[in-house]
Design a binder for these strands. Structure first.
Lengths: 240, 240
DNA sequence: GCGAACTGGGTACAGTGTTCGCAATAACGA
DNA sequence: TCGTTATTGCGAACACTGTACCCAGTTCGC
């Protein structure tokens, strides 16, 4: 079965029965691409570069994958595999907290991952495994499925949204080639202009007073603050 | 002042004092790009296409913008301008609800917008105006700035994350060229495989029992369910 | 052993963002 | 008023991109 037919990636057999055995596996492709993305960002993941990393001809990749987009899906599923042995503590609340933190950490470890997740649904085996495990947070609670889906959907939407915000800063600095401090300084140039204009009194007050935006661990604390709120909100909707 | 120097986009004067007046404005560029993105998606926004839409030479765009990325920022800020006359009701809770819904709606109206928002921080005038207005939701409540930032950060992280999930489906169907129903059918092929494997009992139960995923308005209801939870969580952390 | 199914990969093509250079233009200093 | 200088529009060119097409070589089922 050729890889460029129309059936979905994960239903397509990885190799046919007839010809020579493929020299690599889909997983090899994913791992090579991940190495590149971790080192030089998602934009550096081109077919030619992945092929080179793999020691293969460029267009040979199309034996493993029908479009570049499928490489991204393979990468995403592979990274979700890193969550396999995340231990979930007892009690839905702490389990969800662990889920959220684990998801955030894997997004920070692979700064391209959140963008991959944002752009497409991943249906690979690791993704399924992860979904199954997140559902297990509610084991023994006799909850309706819609209630569980709402809780998990809310949680993961928050995590994804927050991590994307965190990475937007970081990646902008990285792409500009400046150090983070230099970049912060450039960004800081907006401040005086905003305050001087007088059009944004509330925003000005926030810039002056707020402690959080200046702290070194502001992202972490912002995440934990949001997580507390999301968990409290989920709790408020669970049957007593 | 040349547009390709290093200073940030919004601090750079739109035109110099010496030479001929520019034939277009930054806003013209943004609007042309938005027309293209609305019609054919973000990938269709290329320098050549934007220039053509504007009736200009391709490289003339670099008189208005130093990188393509800045066009995306202009687009994002322009779209945030559509939120200018969103009326916020009295009471922080309903105000935040309105903010969240307005943000979601603008993301659905311009399906590329959430991805622009996810990838970079926007510092344009409309963005500032919007931030100022969202802060006004807490007017008269005597809240600390960190508390307001946590509330708004949590809310917008949730909205962005949720909308990206919504769009992932929709855009995947669009890109595949199939109708949404045909695409859903393709996706549905995974179902039997998952259930037959027996490895995912909880996930299987969800697929069978859950009402929400099959409803036509599932995205809307999922969003409202999450929003209720986030608001409840924010309420739980406000001083009584 | 024959043919079908499959893999590897080179070539080619249309399209991308961006740099450079140059002619035309308009405001400033003298 | 007349250079001088900053600025604009833009064509040519470059290095890259994803991928369709083709063909030779390999392996299995018959």
């Amino acid at each position: 079965m050729p890889s460029n037919d129309q059936s979905p990636l994960w239903l397509r057999p990885e190799q046919g029965t007839r010809g020579p055995k493929p020299a690599h596996t889909r997983r090899d492709v994913a791992l090579a691409a991940i190495r590149i993305a971790d080192a030089d960002g998602l934009d550096a993941v081109s077919m030619r570069r992945v092929a080179a990393e793999l020691g293969a001809g460029t267009t040979s990749l199309y034996r493993y994958v029908s479009k570049k987009d499928e490489i991204l899906e393979l990468m995403g599923d592979e990274v979700l595999g890193e969550l396999r042995d995340t231990e979930l503590p007892a009690g839905w609340r702490e389990a969800l907290r662990t889920i959220a933190r684990a998801l955030r950490e894997v997004c920070l470890r692979h700064p391209w991952f959140a963008n991959v997740l944002a752009g497409r649904a991943i249906h690979g085996p690791h993704s399924l495994h992860w979904r199954e495990r997140t559902l297990s947070a509610f084991d023994g609670m006799d909850l309706g499925t819609d209630e569980m889906l709402a809780a998990l959907g809310t949680l993961s939407a928050f995590v994804l949204g927050h991590v994307l915000g965190e990475l937007a800063d970081r990646e902008a600095a990285r792409r500009s080639g400046l150090s983070h401090d230099q970049w912060m300084e450039r960004e800081g140039e907006y401040g005086p202009m905003i305050m001087a204009s007088g059009e944004y009194p509330r925003f000005t007050r926030v810039m002056v007073e707020a402690e959080l935006p200046h702290a070194a661990d502001r992202q972490e604390r912002g995440f934990e603050a949001g997580l507390d709120r999301v968990l409290a909100g989920i709790a408020a909707h669970l049957p007593a």
